[in-house]
């Protein structure tokens, strides 16, 4: 599979990244290299091999339904670039959901 500029634009949009025209060429080359590497891996016959999702064999790692308040409102808001006493502030979201 060969990537083109349209694909770069789509992926950049999904990741909410602005890609300058000057960056495109290098990005295209890098991403095509990655895909080529993947194609190499695809040469391996993986019939009957389950995809690896988890790195350990543990299952059912759960907790009880018990409240534990770890942080205060001040702490919650502290790292946000913009906030008041109560809320996080973000750029006005135009499209209303």
């Amino acid at each position: 599979m060969k990537l083109d500029n349209a694909t770069i634009d789509k992926i950049a949009h999904l990741a909410r990244l602005n890609v300058a025209d000057s960056e495109r060429e290098n990005l295209l080359k890098d991403m095509n290299n990655i895909l080529n590497f993947m194609e190499k891996l695809n040469e391996l016959d993986t019939t009957g091999v389950e995809p690896l999702i988890y790195l350990t064999d543990s299952v059912n790692v759960c907790r009880e339904d018990v409240v534990n308040k770890e942080i205060t409102v001040e702490e919650a808001l502290r790292n946000a670039p913009l906030h008041d006493e109560h809320y996080f502030k973000v750029a006005k979201v135009i499209h209303k959901q």
Binding site: D65, V66, V67, N68, K69, E70, V73, F88
Partner: peptide, 21 residues
């Protein structure tokens, strides 16, 4: 009582951002 993946309260009606983790 708590959220699906963390222990902060899941109840309705608290002041803004009081139920976080």
């Amino acid at each position: 009582q708590t959220k699906i993946f963390s222990s902060d309260p899941a109840s309705f009606g608290a002041g803004p951002n009081q139920h976080t983790s």
